[in-house]
Design a protein around this nucleic acid. Structure first.
Lengths: 260, 260
DNA sequence: CCCATTCATGCAAATATGCGCATAATATAT
DNA sequence: ATATATTATGCGCATATTTGCATGAATGGG
């Protein structure tokens, strides 16, 4: 029997055990650490709230395939994202060519495109390309290059050059932060460069962003919000910031997640 | 008999079985998991309520509703594919650069790569690229170009040119038919061109193919089987054809799906 | 048309869980 | 160092979940 560990140490040991052997039983762990099952249950509850394990009656198991795959994470918090995606998808006319940024909101956007809409999608994200291929009428063009693990998309120098040689109708950006001075920002240098290149290669930029990104700082500037033609966000967004953005000449669309 | 699984684990295992083999019988599953048929029926009822399976008298089958996405289809009939994939993955040394063809067997191959294996994967398939990104130590390079709906990968002229400028260690091909004269063949002209280019860009070709493809006709020739260094297939393959292939100087590996 | 399975529902037993609360342990402030 | 605030723990009890069995209805084959 192991003894006198701090709650956090105990929790991380439990997590380690779950990740190693796949699953643990609450009563076994309780007797092993010399604490009551209640404490173990509390630990498991907290681990489950952080999405690190999956509870079941009697214990807990490794949450689906350790660190959840992107496809699974992409299904998180879809209420707001789906509403934004649906509102944006409804505004795309037929026979449009679009450059798509890599983000989970844009992924939802592709899934929300009407099945009979004829479009051409250009993207450096394999996840988005795969989703686009599931649509019957999409032509899909993949941007090549080395994939970045954070954005899960091609954002290197060669990809950038490829994008810079293009000129298309629409560009759909996601995952941008907007700071106090209404400047678009990104978490990653290459990502910022790529988003800027995507924006410059098109006539109209549509920006999809959940409200939590609306006033947020991020290291790398992309450009002023006025680059964007249309901003689509959800209804929990702060009214005053939306008015300032609207004042900068941006069409602002608030998606209603009730209708989703 | 599998033992003492939590209800949720049991349900997801049942769902997996249904998706892989198409259908299950309630009584068989019950005895396999060591629980009463009532519990299995309850599981099937819940899976059916979520639309994940379709029940029939005595068991349940894969739900045919809606067009299943590629990711889902890729999980069909995985018994043989998983075995082939595992056998092939075990033969890849560390720090290898590989060109990967687009096929569901190759997708399983990527999933079967050991988590700690350092590799560089080059592919024109977004599905395979996405799976490779879920591995911690893979560098992934995407081949750009227009995507073909049948192969779900980039196989156009520009992609071809890009591949022809490469020279790497391994190339992993899938979904080739082999005809009576031991000629590799493909269903699609561009696909055949691409497979040939992939093969010419590497030092060793590994071909993964389920036994049903072993003596089969297809319109477009790729080249003689002797191009291939290693063929991995499953144990239902016909012995005589394997001996002929082996006689052509190809290392033949028969994966045992029992061990999978 | 009959019969053997299979299915849904209700029920009871075993077990697991959540919550409140008192107490113990730890951290923080004075 | 002492007092106080914060947190962690264990126990009891009401509740929830899971499971297997019994009963009657439904299904499908011969």
């Amino acid at each position: 029997m192991l003894k006198d560990l701090s709650p956090d140490e105990r929790k991380s040991m439990i997590l380690q055990r779950i990740n190693e052997s796949g699953r643990v039983l609450a009563n076994a762990v309780a007797s092993e650490f010399g604490v009551s099952e209640d404490s173990i249950r509390r630990d498991l509850r907290e681990l489950a709230e952080q999405g690190l394990v999956q509870r079941f009656h009697g214990g807990a198991a490794r949450s689906r395939s350790g660190p959840r795959s992107f496809q699974q994470r992409a299904r998180d918090e879809t209420a707001g994202k789906k509403a934004i995606a649906a509102a944006a998808a409804a505004r795309i006319p037929a026979n449009t060519t679009m450059l798509l940024d890599a983000s989970t909101t844009v992924l939802e956007f592709v899934r929300a495109l009407p099945a009979d809409l004829q479009t051409c999608i250009i993207t450096g994200s394999p996840d988005i390309a795969s989703a686009a291929l599931d649509h019957p009428c999409c032509e899909v063009i993949l941007l090549g290059g080395s994939l970045n693990r954070l954005t899960r998309s091609a954002i290197g120098q060669s990809t950038l050059a490829e994008v810079q040689s293009m000129r298309v109708d629409y560009c759909v950006l996601g995952a941008c932060a907007i700071d106090e001075e209404l400047m678009l920002r990104a978490e990653n240098y290459d990502d910022a460069r790529m988003k800027l290149a995507l924006g410059q290669a098109c006539n109209e930029i549509m920006l999809l962003t959940t409200s939590e990104k609306l006033v947020k700082q991020a290291p790398f500037a992309i450009g002023p919000i006025s680059l964007v033609s249309t901003l689509v966000t959800d209804r929990t967004a702060d009214r005053s910031i939306l008015e300032r953005i609207s004042g900068a000449g941006v069409e602002v669309i608030v998606a209603d997640d009730q209708l989703a």
